[in-house]
Amino acid sequence: MTAPIRVLVCDDQALIRTGFATIIGAQPDLAVVGECGNGREAVDLAGRLRPDVVVMDVRMPVLDGIAATRLLAGVGAAHPVKVLVVTTFNLDEYVYEALRAGASGFLLKDAPPAQLLHGIRTIAGGAALLAPEVTRQLVGRYAARIRPAEGTPNDVGLTRRELEVLRLIADGLSNGEIAARLVISQETVKTYVSRILTKLDLRDRVQAVVYAYRTGLVT
């Protein structure tokens, strides 16, 4: 049997934390290895418990979720952990910064339990999770305040089609939706996504979205 996915839940609101832990712990393929109420505790516990995924709130005392995510999943992290940020609509700026810090995805706190479970499994499996229905609102609303990065996607040799796919990723479309929009197969979309990530030296789709906004490819 495959070992269950080890999950650490971090949220300063006890009711939400307990609710998440109850939902996650009821799944045979998931195991809650710890709970905590601030980012500092999350970093400390992750070092001892080695979870596969940390479900992370953003606004917390002592150490917020952004700083904790940077320590857990950012460049130079001693033992990188995948982080799933859970947030609300009024935290646009914080979510953008969390994604830059290394989070593998985000969900809204009022998402159905099935989406939370899907999100944990998705990022544990090495993929990124973007909630398509909120990506443009969540990242795009903050895009006007993002300092543009130097260079453009064309500087690293993306083809016209790859640029088109990158724009659609940044719009929050799934591989299936991109395939339908461009009238190509999902396998072809996966190939384009892989090439884009390789050429831009990005880890996943979340970083691709951030990159697209920072370079002005999407406005």
Rank of each mutant, 00 (worst) to 15 (best):
G157I: 02
I146G: 06
R145L: 09
P132E: 02
L129M: 00
G157Y: 06
E150Q: 15
Q137E: 14
I120F: 03
I123D: 11
G151M: 10
V139M: 09
I120S: 01
A149M: 15
L158S: 13
A124F: 06
A131T: 13
R147N: 08
T122Y: 04
A131E: 13
P148E: 07
I123M: 08
L130V: 05
A127R: 08
G151Y: 09
G125Y: 04
P132K: 07
L129V: 02
L138S: 02
R145S: 03
N154I: 14
V134W: 07
E150R: 13
V134Y: 10
V156S: 14
A128R: 00
A131G: 08
P148G: 08
E133I: 04
L129H: 03
Q137R: 12
G119Y: 04
I146Q: 11
A149K: 12
R147W: 06
H118W: 03
A143C: 01
E133Q: 09
L117M: 04
R136M: 11
D155L: 06
T135D: 08
V134H: 12
G157H: 07
D155V: 04
A127N: 09
R147L: 13
R145W: 05
G126I: 00
A143G: 04
L129T: 02
A128V: 04
R145T: 05
R141H: 14
E150F: 14
D155G: 13
V134M: 10
D155R: 03
R147Q: 12
A143W: 04
E150K: 15
A131F: 06
H118I: 07
P148W: 09
G119M: 08
G151E: 05
G151W: 09
